[in-house]
Structures are given as structure tokens and as C-alpha cells.
Amino acid sequence: MNIDLSGKTVFVSGSTKGIGRAIAAQLARQGAAVMINGRTQASVDTAVNELRDADENAEVFGVAADCSTAAGVEAVLKAAPEVDILVNNVGFFDPKPFFDLDDDDWTGAFDVNVMSGVRLSRAYAPGMKEKGWGRIVFISSESALNIPTEMVQYGMTKTAQLAVARGLAQTLRGTGVTVNSVLPGPTKSEGVIDMMEGQRKDGESVDDAGVRFVRENRPTSIIDRMAEVQEVANMVGYVCSPAASATTGAGLRVDGGVVGYPV
């Protein structure tokens, strides 16, 4: 399938590394002009330069802003007043037992993982509707359906994303704007690799530690390994394309089969 996003503008929140960066690179390869985002100017500049070095044809720009805040979203809107494709990717996870979670843990997770996408979608969706075409994607997680006991607050935010995405898709019925969620399973992003480094046994590689983590913590996985960030980006690249015009209000799983069927 030849996917051409030439002439389309994209904003990917939290895209200086990990899944977000892989998504930004994928959409740039498909011809879109992509706005990279991170909290610091240094991280944004590094990501933009590296993506341009990797692909001389990539049309990549950047904006430093904390999308978990209203002020940060305003900074994004100033840099990119309109987009055709919005990928609500920014997020974080923090393994912590339920009874150790305080109010700040809950509200902090909600602000980053949920309110960032709410504010950005609220700002960008009307312009997409007016043009009669647009794509909004929430990067949720299999943890939305398979709540991890080691980070209940994270699972809560990912379930909330599914609700927001579905409700927004229904709100934009018949407009040509699609809204979907993509649900990765355990994925080898930098944050997860760092976590695996801390859990490696003597003589164990990071990849082997990842397989062990999946087997011990996500034993229903069918692929029996962590996903690569590119595998998630491949799904996003499709759902952002004109080819996915009949896919909306959906939760698209790239979870390696962790969540049982049907859901």
C-alpha cells in the first residue's frame, strides 16, 4: 500500500523519543510536514536534527512545550495554528503500588496522559471539521483494558483516553474527521529499556530481560516479546492515511495479543 500524506500537516505530542518519535518519522516518510514536540528546546532540536539527518527529504519542525498544561498547549497552537493530523502521544508511566499513590500521582498522570489530548483535540478538531478531513489518534495502551496492578493510575488514564476518543469520534460523525485509539502492548521505548536495564539478571541482555518481563507480567502475550516502536508507528501510519477513511471510533491493538479476544 502506497500511503501519501503530501500536503498534510501533523503534530505529534511527546515525540522526541520512543513511540512518538517513531510515529513522527513514519508520518514524515509518508510525505507529511511534521511538528516534533518535547518539554525542552534541547531535546526538540536534537530530535529534529537527527530526523533530518536520517531522511534528507523529511519536512520536520519542532516546538518545545509541556502539553500537560494549558499554557503549553497554547504554545503549541501558536507554533502550529492548524493541523490535518493530530497524534496525542505524550504520556508517562510510574510503577507504584496503589496504596503509595497520593493525590498528586493521580492528577499528574491525568494531566499528562488525558488532558493533553483533550486540550489539543478541542483546539484542532474544529479546523479539521471545517476542511472536511482530519485524523486524530490517541496513543492509549493495552493497560486500558488489562489494568496493571503495579500502576493503576496509568491504566486509569489509558481507559479514559478510550472514552474521550470514542466520544469525540461520535461527536464528529459524518464530518470526514476520524478519531481512533491505538493500544500498544509492552514496547521497547527508551523508558521501558531503562526499566529493563534496572531489572536485568547477570548475563542477561536487555532483549532477554524484555522477554522475561512479558512472560512474567503479560503471560497472555502471543508474540512472546516486546514490540518495537516501529511496529506501533506502522499502525499509526495507516490509521492517519486516506486509506483508513472507514476506521473511526476504534481501539486498534498493537499489543501482541496480550488482551484476550473479544474485547
Score class of each variant (00 low, 15 high):
Phe92Lys: 10
Cys240Glu: 02
Lys188His: 13
Gly257Lys: 01
Val214Met: 07
Thr149Pro: 03
Val118Ala: 06
Met156Lys: 04
Arg39Ser: 14
Glu231His: 05
Val177His: 03
Arg122Ser: 09
Leu252Glu: 05
Leu162Ala: 04
Ala58Phe: 10
Leu168Val: 02
Glu231Met: 02
Asp55Met: 13
Pro148Gly: 09
Asp4Trp: 01
Arg39Pro: 02
Asp103Ala: 14
Gly117Met: 11
Arg225Ser: 04
Val177Met: 09
Val12Pro: 02
Ser141Ala: 09
Phe98Asn: 05
Ala79Cys: 09
Val83Ile: 15
Ser189Met: 09
Glu74Phe: 00
Gln170Pro: 00
Val114Tyr: 03
Asp103Gln: 10
Lys8Ile: 07
Asn180Ser: 10
Gly185Leu: 07
Gly191Asp: 10
Arg29Ser: 15
Ala64Tyr: 09
Val118Thr: 11
Thr187Val: 08
Thr175Val: 05
Tyr154Gln: 01
Thr159Pro: 00
Ala109Cys: 09
Ala75Cys: 07
Pro219Ala: 08
Val83Asp: 05
Met196Phe: 09
Glu74Met: 06
Leu77Cys: 14
Gly155Thr: 03
Glu50His: 00
Pro97His: 12
Ser6His: 06
Ser13Trp: 01
Pro81Phe: 13
Leu168Met: 12
Ser143Asp: 12
Val63Arg: 07
Ile223Pro: 00
Glu231Asp: 09
Asp66Gln: 06
Met195Thr: 10
Leu86Pro: 00
Gly257Val: 03
